[in-house]
């Protein structure tokens, strides 16, 4: 842990340096605040405007978490079905890839037309960006199951179901978690985009309001909030992974 903390200071130092350069250049060049606010100004706005901002933050966190949960469940379920039914996999897999090529920005207004301004179109947007990394990661994980373990299970008479639940699924957990980590960070972005469609509150709403009234400092507060949220989601998934998957080291060194 101590070593990790020591290593962790480097990105912070770079970040700090970046902020300092930013602050100094804005101040010396005399850039107006509505064009590019200085970091200290953004910080004080975040502090002063916290009461107004926090309900938006909470709303986005809730939306992102719900969307992430639904999206990853659907993603994992899709992977399981596609893995167990190879003929369906061949038919569906290309469509899944295509689904990722639909520009969300174009799709989102359509979803509002179809489903209104409620929760549903927002969840669809988040699910669309969340499920794919998990499906791909889980499918790869299932496929990469160590052949010698599979051979043992088959020789020992495991049924198709046993082979999946007792071997392939637990073996794929590290892969599933790398998918979850990507999706967790996407889910925050997905939530913000879905809020642009029209919502009462949320970071997306706050952001649109701020930018249309030239409150650039608030736009930056929102940007940093999104970044921090993504990091936080990522960290939570990483902690969960560390508790659930204790055997990744062994996998890399092989039996």
């Amino acid at each position: 842990m101590g070593i990790k903390l020591l290593k962790g200071w480097r990105p912070f130092a770079v970040l700090l340096l970046l902020f300092i350069v930013w602050e100094i250049s804005v101040k010396t060049a005399g850039v107006p605040e509505w064009l590019l606010p200085a970091p200290i100004h953004i910080g004080s706005e975040a502090y002063a405007g916290w009461a107004g901002f926090s309900p938006h933050l909470v709303s986005t966190v809730k939306l992102a978490m719900l969307g992430f949960f639904i999206g990853s469940s659907i993603g994992l379920l899709t992977a399981i079905v596609l893995h167990l039914l190879p003929t369906i996999r061949e038919a569906i897999y290309p469509l899944l890839i295509l689904s990722q090529n639909i520009p969300i920005i174009v799709l989102a207004p359509l979803l509002v037309i179809w489903f209104g301004f409620g929760l549903l179109p927002k969840l669809i947007v988040i699910t669309l960006v969340c499920f794919f990394p998990i499906t791909v990661a889980a499918l790869d994980g299932f496929k990469q199951t160590a052949p010698e373990l599979k051979h043992y299970m088959i020789m020992a008479g495991a049924t198709r179901g046993q082979l999946f639940w007792k071997l392939e699924l637990p073996y794929s957990l590290p892969s599933v978690f790398s998918g979850l980590k990507i999706s967790a960070t996407y889910s925050v972005m997905g939530a913000v985009i879905s809020e642009w469609l029209g919502a009462k509150e949320g970071i997306g709403v706050y952001m649109t309001l701020a930018s249309s009234s030239f409150r650039t400092d608030r736009v930056f507060v929102a940007i940093f909030a999104i970044m921090l949220l993504s990091l936080l989601f990522f960290a939570v998934i990483m902690l969960a992974e560390r508790r659930l998957v204790r055997w990744t080291n062994e996998r890399s060194e092989k039996q």
Partner: peptide, 15 residues
């Protein structure tokens, strides 16, 4: 499923 088997590698489940 009619025989019990021990392979070349131990093939123990790592988890």
């Amino acid at each position: 499923g009619f025989i019990s088997y021990m392979p070349q590698t131990p093939s123990l489940l790592p988890w």
